[in-house]
Design a protein around this nucleic acid. Structure first.
Length: 510
RNA sequence: GGCGAUUUAGUGUAGAGGCCUAGCACGCCGCCCUCUCACGGCGGAAACUCGGGUUCGAAUCCCGAAUUCGCUACCA
């Protein structure tokens, strides 16, 4: 019987969700939707030492912002709950007991110090079939003594009894059959009595089974422990419903070596988190894509193409298009260096698809923050200003430097441009320009342009110098959209007053 | 060190024996457009890790080496 596809995203709430984690969540989501399946969000908070308050809410908010929605999980509940591992203690205890009763696991009392000593004594110490007979555990101590110690309240762990010298096969949908000999596996700790919590490995297998997960899609860092998981499914007698594995390639640093980390973002100046994160302990702020000005669609599109491609040259794809085309047959197996420049380009493309008024709405708060009284400008004015410069922006905030002059007259002028375009007799020519402008029958760009250009050529003036001085006076520097489009929008009063202002304030360059 | 994975331009990738004088995109450079800066259009530089095979023919198949990454915790 074909089981309904069910996948899960299972982050650990130890801090803000990393962008690599976001991609893992995205691939899970795309696959689930593609297959008409379901996706659950499970919180793996089995490490009480690393738990960070707020991290869970952050994860939910971030994925929600990106449009990655869950069918079941910690926020929406569901028939397989609870979805927080710390609330499933009784379940894990039951399965730990089952393993113990079946002789598939044993209790060990070795203290961290004793383990450390063992590692010191033996170069490549590994707690396994060969060494467990020399340690303090239920195998060497016997059932009676073990029970006595447990009853006496001694802290212990439960270790998985790995059967030596077995070739364990992991069938990975991306990498094919990976075979690992069980001799290199150690007797992993499954449960710690100290905090009455399982470790990742046990909780993961139990939950995936109970939650009827069909596909475990996770980062490549889990590949080495996949054989252990396979063995665990066997030990529980769940081999027939064991999920398929997909180990996704990692996101790497743009330069140098290794996994992309928070430090790289700080060092290279880009976010590695979806949302801003204020660390509750250090008070430190980590920048997020949302606050940096990214559209969630752009982030999703960008991330989807890191390690996957649709098979043709299509690059801009909505979530629905990604879903309809996604598959592991087109995933790459090697790590992808994170290319922030390409990410900016995606945002640029998505910004271009917004209408002028949509962009204007996004721009208004930025303008207001910059101290502009936006009440003085009509929505139509803002939208038109935005429309003229949108082609040159990667972020909404870029609008400030590109279109700011539409809202505030320049209070300084680019020295470079003064030097090049503002000479001794420029003020006189600008004075003439004002008269020409005043005599204009129409301020429409198409009407005004031939008149002004005609005046320039008729007087034998230098086209570039006059027009750029004009631009310098109005914009503050020699950049921006077509000059007469600017003046049409700004209107005669503002335009002429800016020229007068410039004549007063600019000292000619040498 | 051990184990596993990985390997096409600076980056992300296409390519599944002849269609490859290796395609696309970002980035970079140049030209055009032009009152400026951009956008856009056009063009350019830039890659099959190496060594052996197999084959009439290999980026594509086989073997070996190297590379890079990951794992090697009472973290996930």
């Amino acid at each position: 019987m074909e089981r309904k596809v069910r996948v899960r995203f299972a982050p650990s709430p130890t801090g803000p969700l990393h962008i690599g984690g976001v991609r893992t969540a995205l691939f899970n989501y795309l696959y689930a939707r593609r297959m008409g399946g379901e996706m659950v969000l499970r919180i793996e908070d089995t490490d009480s030492k690393r738990f960070v308050p707020g991290a869970e809410d952050y994860i939910c908010e971030a994925l929600d912002w990106l449009g990655i929605h869950f069918d079941e999980g910690v926020k929406q509940g569901g028939p397989h709950g609870p979805y927080r591992q710390s609330e499933r203690r009784d379940i894990y205890r039951r399965y730990v007991k089952q393993l113990l009763d079946d002789g598939k696991a044993y209790i060990a009392f070795d203290t961290p110090e004793e383990l450390e000593a063992a590692r010191q004594a033996t170069p490549n110490f590994q707690y396994d079939a060969a060494t467990r007979v020399n340690m303090r555990n239920s195998i060497t101590l016997g059932d009676e003594e073990t029970q006595r110690l447990v009853d006496a309240g001694e802290t212990y762990v439960v270790r998985f009894k790995i059967e030596p010298d077995r070739d364990v096969e992991v069938n990975d949908l991306l990498r094919g059959k990976v075979v690992i000999n069980s001799n290199i596996l150690d007797d992993k700790v499954l449960y710690k009595s100290a905090d009455d919590l399982p470790t990742y490995h046990l909780a993961n297998i139990v939950d995936d089974h109970l939650m009827e997960i069909t596909h475990v899609i996770r980062g490549e860092e889990w590949l080495p422990s996949a054989p252990l998981h396979v063995l665990l499914y066997e030990a529980f007698g769940w081999a027939d419903t064991r999920p398929d594995f997909v180990h996704l390639p990692l996101l790497l640093k743009p330069d140098g070596k290794g996994k992309l980390s928070k430090r790289d973002g700080d060092r290279l100046g880009f976010p590695v988190f979806p949302l801003d994160w204020h660390d509750p302990k250090t008070g430190e702020l980590s920048k997020g894509y949302r606050e940096a000005g990214y559209l969630p669609e752009a982030v999703v599109n960008f991330l989807a193409l890191l390690g996957w491609n649709p098979g043709d040259d299509t690059e801009i794809m909505s979530m629905d298009e990604l879903i309809s085309r996604f598959g592991f047959d087109r995933c790459s197996r090697s790590g992808a260096k994170f290319d922030y420049e390409k990410g900016k380009w995606f945002n640029h493309k998505y910004l271009q698809e917004l209408s002028d008024s949509q962009l204007a709405d996004l721009f208004k708060p930025v303008l207001a923050d910059a101290g502009v009284d936006i009440g003085r400008f009509s929505d139509d004015y803002i939208a038109k200003a935005v429309g003229m410069v949108k082609g040159r922006i990667n972020f909404v905030k870029d609008l400030l430097s590109q279109a700011g002059f539409f809202f505030t007259a320049p209070d300084s002028y680019a020295p470079k441009d003064i030097k090049k375009r503002w000479s001794e007799d420029t003020p006189r020519i600008m004075g003439e320009l004002i008269e020409v402008l005043r005599g204009l029958p129409s301020w429409k760009s198409a009407d005004a342009e031939p008149v002004v250009l005609g005046w320039i050529t008729d007087n034998g003036y230098h086209m570039g110098n006059v027009m750029n001085a004009f631009r310098l006076a109005v914009v503050g520097e020699c950049k921006g959209p077509h000059m007469f489009d600017i003046t049409e929008l700004m209107g005669p009063d503002e335009t002429i007053s800016r020229i007068e202002r410039a004549i007063e304030r600019i000292k000619p360059g040498e």
